[in-house]
Design a protein around this nucleic acid. Structure first.
Lengths: 362, 362
DNA sequence: TCTCTTTATGTAATCGATTACATTCATAAT
DNA sequence: ATTATGAATGTAATCGATTACATAAAGAGA
């Protein structure tokens, strides 16, 4: 029938015929509607400026041509990127993906794309974070990783993009960049208090990595509550970890070797708790009968662990949503008002009681 | 000192002075180096075309101006987007994030951005997948979700973008789009055989959701192996699930109500297995003493579950890396050769023996 | 020495939108 | 009737790169 079908193997759109053709431009629409390109552009961005009649005819033309705005052209002209980057410490960790979901939801609504970069991948690239801005690849950034070097932070300032950055979950100590975080200190206190109320006095703590703000905040909360309750303290009860399953496992060895074995362990993350519990089990020590364990995060699996994990719940999705909102605020108008910069948004946490922490000496 | 610092709050770059200024363009570099913009462009894309001398001077100018190519301008001119989209069924599921990591790694090397979209977010947008292509937002797509409607697939074909799509992990039954997958059938057979060798004959199976290809492939593998080994079969031993923790929990109820209770359960995912085991435990049924359980996926946590989960390992990162490679191939030259389209890349799986499946009746 | 290649570089059109400014026209105010 | 005002639309410059084509220079071959 039609041998001239394959003139170009370019994109098609969906006009009346199924003919292969380049996709329609704003020019095509303008021609079709008998108006100028300016009018078409207005129909899209400021429809209220147009007469109902012209508006209609433009939209009709848009429909009939199957027109779609060319992002690259728009971005070039408006000097935007239409994308936001999320920097994740570890994509493989279920904890972060939930935050990501919240971000996607809130950001996607505003027609921004979400770029995702894993810190590990990133550092191996040798690319600086600020380069994403300088390469006009992104308009803003949400950082779930507090271990950003001060050098990088300085770059942000120097290039005037620090207003388009929001930290979520983690943050950088001493920096005044906006952030959304859970009340980690309170979480730690809740954990300790709960163990105390169950009768525990000898409480150990497996921390996160030493260079992490969460590690410090949670440890401080724990120490404060411990002091308030006048609990005994031994240096060896503070065990260094790194939030990972493996560090939970490694903690067991140390616990087994202790002169004065704790009756309860507060872990800096649920993952640590899992690593700990499973390894205790492998050593014939039962949770919670022999030792109580409490985690932090309340990832979905905690409810389905054996035993169910008593833990501190963070609203991960809310962290993401709020961070996105904050970022949009910072990006949108000239509204980079310093107002929000100084005070981090603090989200409440909650003790979730399950089976892994029980009354002492039953 | 200098009050004229705030003339424009635009981007800076890093020239000798710290003055705020618009970032340098290719024009600036050309001027600085005393060449044309064409030459600068060549220095970047085809350096071998230039004299060593000019090349040097261009790079010097690039350095001194702090020039960076403007992505939007390049994209507009070259009709590319510089980005790839990954469609994930559920970002909150640790299973997928690992694949994502693999993709990021492989795609990022080629200087593409990785957009991530959760299927849920996506469908709620009312946007079609093909729209990402039509809006020139992406050059290619990796789909981890096999539940793409045939309507969407048709749109891909019609718009000539099906060569830039790769399925990973899941795929669409009957479609010939390229894909990378684990050998799910073999995985299921391995699982059943393992249980058989442990002495189990009454083996139940908790499936995935009915509309999922993995569900079918794994079920078929299981049925085939079951037949080969001449195992008894009861309809009720096939329990419908959906890969989630919750569906594992729900399965327990059904198992408890069975006339002929199975001695082992093969779960379609590790998550299901966790849901199952924890709920069995809550009902006083011990794993593996009273009932053996085997999962599928080998997510990181499986090793740290109590008991350690015997399961089928998929190399998730490899799935991602290979999918990315396949996609790059399809996007790169005019090399959309049909050669690869027909045969899915099949990755081997492996039985990982831990504690959740044990010899019958000890 | 003169023409023919070959190689290095420049000129300028182009990608497709946005938007400052100009123009037109209808309506209100004088 | 005349001018001012405002609303609707058009004109054309612009964003910053890429690249087809044109040109210049250098060397090869006669």
């Amino acid at each position: 029938m039609s041998t001239r079908n394959c003139e170009r193997r370019k994109k098609r759109n969906a006009p009346e015929t199924g003919l292969v053709q380049k996709s329609a431009t704003i020019q095509d629409v303008a021609r079709q509607a008998g108006v100028s390109t300016a009018t078409v552009s207005r129909a899209l961005s400021n429809p209220e400026l147009l007469t109902e009649a012209t508006r209609e005819s433009v939209f009709a033309a848009i429909r009939s041509t199957g027109y779609r705005v060319n992002r690259a052209a728009r971005n070039l002209r408006t000097r935007q990127a239409g994308a936001v980057l999320v920097l994740v410490p570890n994509l493989g960790n279920p904890f972060f993906s939930q935050i990501l979901a919240g971000i996607s939801e809130a950001i996607g609504e505003r027609d921004y794309s979400v770029l995702v970069v894993d810190t590990n991948d990133h550092t191996s690239t040798g690319k600086l974070l600020v380069d994403y801005f300088l390469d006009s690849q992104i308009d803003g950034m949400i950082c779930l990783d507090g271990s950003v070097s001060s050098h990088e932070l300085q770059q942000f300032e120097e290039n005037g993009v620090s207003g388009q950055i929001v930290f979520a979950c983690e943050w950088v100590h001493g920096s005044d960049l906006p952030s959304v975080r859970s009340d980690n200190n309170r979480g730690a206190r809740l954990a300790v208090r709960h163990l105390y109320e169950l009768g525990h006095r000898k409480i150990a703590h497996v921390t996160g990595p030493e260079d992490n703000v969460l590690t410090h905040t949670r440890r401080e909360g724990m120490l404060a509550e411990r002091e308030r309750l006048d609990l005994p303290f031994r240096e060896e009860w503070i065990i260094r970890g790194d939030f990972s399953l493996k560090s939970g496992r490694d903690a067991v060895e140390k616990i087994l070797a202790m002169d004065e074995r704790p009756t309860a362990v507060f872990c800096a993350s649920d993952q640590v708790a899992f690593g700990l519990i499973s390894t205790l089990a492998a050593n014939g020590i039962r949770v919670p009968e022999d030792i109580s364990v409490i985690g932090f995060d309340d990832i979905e699996l905690s409810e389905y662990y054996v035993p169910g994990l008593t833990t501190i719940r963070q609203d991960r999705r809310a962290l993401g949503v709020q961070a996105a909102a904050l970022l949009l605020e910072g990006m949108d108008p000239a509204g980079a008002v310093a107002g929000l910069r100084r005070s981090p948004v603090m989200l409440d946490v909650e003790l979730v009681v399950r089976a892994s922490a029980a009354a002492l000496g039953r």
